[in-house]
Design a binder for these strands. Structure first.
Length: 351
DNA sequence: GGATCCTTCTTCTTCTTC
């Protein structure tokens, strides 16, 4: 019985009609559609990532207990019903296909005179109107499958670490992410890269970020002409905002760059979940924000590892960005709909 | 001064047989 249900559920996930997110991930990551015996990790340089893999495997949660299986089963039961619900259109299309690029500014090839990166601080102040952030929209429009796996993961972690242990584990992950971001920010604003800095002046990082910085060292060598760092972007017509990590040229291509830390190796774009949608959302906002007189068509997601193994850099060309932009528009539509239906029926249950 | 905001992360079959 268990097995049957589980197979059905997996079928629900794989079914292309599940969610727009899943569809876009599949389109971007054919590894997931390859024959089942072919693991997406099989082409990873296992020797190079051996210590990372070892650390992941050693912290792996032990097999399930009847208790967790039962709880899981309860969770599984729901999605199966959902997967059999009236078929959603196979490929949803945004109601309004707002352009990713703005027609106001042409694509620039020259760098501006001033070499100082822009940093527009977030100012929520006076504006009474509600402007949701990219993170908030993405968090509140997760697919049922994503919610299921995240909750299952959380449950497992708590069963292993305890409530308090899990809390400090999560806080530590956030802390490392923040430290890493500010270290990257420092090195990029100082104009120094690991390539052109004097070895004797190589900056000293906090021990927690040393490995991450080593991980991205070769990628930093290819980052030039930094235009913006930790800067607010806002899409006026679509009414959302966010803060971009970085806008710079990577191997000569102007990109919105997103720096990520990860415990697990993420060798494929498909391993990065909503990150590409996030990057497309930022780029789309920047392209339609009058504070930035240029446009960015490309994206880059850099996944850094604590043990110093080489980071994975996932480039998003303009075609991919347009695809993820559509996914973003759908998520934004869902968010708006959710909010308006919630507002119109105050008694309606919260998810 | 306190509250809130934007981020920072976390998921993807699963272990048996060669």
């Amino acid at each position: 019985m268990f097995i049957l249900k589980r197979v059905l559920f997996v079928g629900g996930i794989i079914a292309p009609q599940s969610t727009s997110l899943t569809v876009s991930h599949f389109s971007a990551c054919h590894c997931l559609t390859s024959p089942k015996r072919h693991s997406p990790y099989s082409s990873v340089d296992s020797e190079r990532y051996s210590s990372l893999v070892k650390s992941v495997m050693s912290s792996r949660v032990s097999s399930q207990t009847p208790e967790t299986l039962q709880v899981e089963d309860e969770h599984i039961y729901g999605p199966v019903v959902k997967a059999q619900m009236p078929t959603q259109t196979q490929k949803r299309v945004p109601k309004t296909l707002h352009p990713f690029l703005s027609s106001e500014w042409t694509l620039e090839t020259e760098e501006p005179e001033s070499g100082t990166p822009v940093r527009i601080l977030l100012n929520r102040g006076q504006g009474r109107s509600f402007v949701p952030s990219v993170t908030r929209v993405l968090q509140q429009t997760l697919s049922p499958e994503q919610i299921f796996y995240l909750e299952r993961w959380k449950r497992r972690m708590i069963s292993e670490l305890g409530e308090e242990g899990f809390k400090s584990y999560s806080q530590n992950l956030f802390r490392q992410g923040k430290l890493f971001h500010s270290a990257v920010e420092d090195i990029l604003t100082s104009g120094a890269t690991l390539a052109n800095s004097n070895p004797s002046e190589t900056p000293e990082y906090a021990p927690e970020v040393q490995g991450y910085m080593e991980s991205i060292s070769s990628i930093l060598e290819d980052v030039r002409a930094v235009r913006a760092i930790e800067s607010t972007v806002q899409h006026g017509p679509l009414n959302y905002l966010g803060i971009v990590d970085c806008v710079a040229r990577y191997r000569g291509v102007l990109c919105v760059i997103d720096w990520k830390t990860s415990e697990k190796p993420k060798p494929f774009l498909g391993n990065t979940y909503d990150n590409p949608v996030q990057v497309a959302a930022y780029a789309g906002a920047l392209n339609n924000d009058e504070n930035y007189k240029y446009q960015v068509e490309n994206g880059l997601i850099v996944v850094a590892y604590k043990d110093g193994s080489p980071a994975h850099a996932h480039q998003l060309n303009s075609e991919l960005m347009s695809e993820y932009w559509k996914t973003w528009l759908l998520r934004l539509e869902d968010f708006t709909e959710q909010r308006s239906s919630h507002a119109s029926s105050p008694s309606s249950e919260k998810r």
